Amino acid sequence: MEGREFLFKLSNSMGVSGYEHNLNSLLEEYFKGYVDEISYGKLGDFIGIKKGRGSLKIMIAAHLDEVGLMVTEIDDRGFVHFRVINGIDPKTLPAQEVIIHGKKEVYGVIGAKPPHILTSEDLKKAIDVDDMLIDTGLEKDKLIEIVSPGDVITIKRDATNLLGDFITGKAFDDRAGVCAMFECAKILKDCEHYPDVYFVATVMEEVGHKGARTVTNVINPDIGIAIDVTSADKYASDDILVECGKNIKIAVGPNIHPELVEKLIETAQEQDIPYKIVAEPGRTGTDAWDIQVSGEGVATLLVSIPIKYMHTSVEVLNYTDIEKVGKLIASFILSLKDWSDIYA
């Protein structure tokens, strides 16, 4: 239950891109018993280090930030205008409850024109963020005392258990990956391993992978393993290969080190971990892309957790997939002593 509890707390917390520091104390609380030291990158990336017996350095990275909104204006009627901080479909926003993180938390709702007053032309158009407003119930003179342009906004949503091992909530992209790192750390706690392991919760992935790029230069790992989520909405496309609760994704392609991924697949087979190999012929859209070309270059892997309804406030996953990813990466680390284990 410890890992699930951690995911619930992460999901229910605010950590929009650039504001991930709000989660630092929570990360320290859960990782401190499993790592030898904790530090932070200059942009705010969390780094937990577990020492090994050898010289190999492995960095595991999952991004901590979530998509969100930002206040742009408070009009004379007291309504809050806003913009999207990358990656939210405007169609999912009307009628959502939100929290504006100003000088104090302010609750509001996203309103839009009701259908009764829409013209026939309006009904044919997709709703735009510019047509939406946040109503807090406060007049402008009261609201501007606690809310300003630049304040971030999150959807008000608490994570909830569904049937079986399924959970729904916001920000599972990619706090599910952070929990997979935690599951890996739990396995490694009492194990003897050769590589030094760096558990890194990166910042600002959703706005350009900024944390991964800089922190990799600082750590200079031999191997980088990015953990992210991947679409599992099979009802939406026959091209989607993974399903929640059934398998995890192992990426192959130019962003991925060929010998390492072969070793990772062998490990999955040895541990009876169900997986799908998914071809990524170009950019993977994850921290793996930036990790690979940092410094003098890093041998990189990408493992992904299936998720439905990505970048909404009702993302759905199966917690057993998080445990599978944690077990796979821990087993992979335990199988390595030095580069000869890969290039044997």
Rank of each mutant, 00 (worst) to 15 (best):
I187R: 14
L23V: 07
V147Y: 03
E73H: 12
I88F: 04
H63D: 03
I322D: 04
F8L: 05
H21V: 08
G245N: 07
H257C: 10
N217L: 04
I155F: 11
G211H: 09
P94M: 14
D173A: 01
D272L: 14
E315Y: 03
D135N: 12
L336D: 10
A159M: 10
T267I: 09
A201G: 15
K57C: 04
D233E: 06
T168D: 10
E73D: 12
R213S: 15
D158P: 02
M181V: 07
T300C: 04
D158I: 05
E66S: 01
D122I: 07
T216C: 13
G245Y: 05
L302V: 00
K308I: 07
L27P: 10
T72S: 14
E315V: 09
G208D: 00
E37K: 14
L69K: 14
G150H: 10
G41D: 11
I329C: 13
D173W: 04
T284A: 05
L188G: 05
F166R: 13
I110K: 15
R157S: 06
N86Y: 00
E315K: 06
K142A: 12
T216I: 12
I248T: 07
D287R: 04
V152T: 15
E315I: 05
R175C: 06
K9T: 11
L302A: 14
H116W: 00
E206G: 08
I167V: 13
K57E: 09
I256V: 09
T202N: 04
P149E: 00
K189F: 05
P221H: 09
G137I: 09
V109Y: 00
I187V: 12
E37T: 01
I85G: 12
I248R: 06
S148T: 12
T160V: 11
P90C: 05
S55L: 07
I49P: 05
I153P: 14
K32N: 15
K246M: 13
I225N: 01
K327V: 12
V314K: 12
V197H: 00
V252M: 08
L43D: 02
R283A: 15
A330T: 01
L260N: 02
Y275E: 12
W289S: 06
K189G: 05
E183Q: 15
G211L: 03
K9V: 11
K51L: 12
D45T: 05
Y343E: 13
L143G: 13
I256S: 13
L163M: 11
K210V: 05
I153L: 08
A126M: 07
T320C: 03
L123W: 08
Y309H: 07
I248H: 06
S340G: 11
L10I: 07
Q292F: 01
N217C: 05
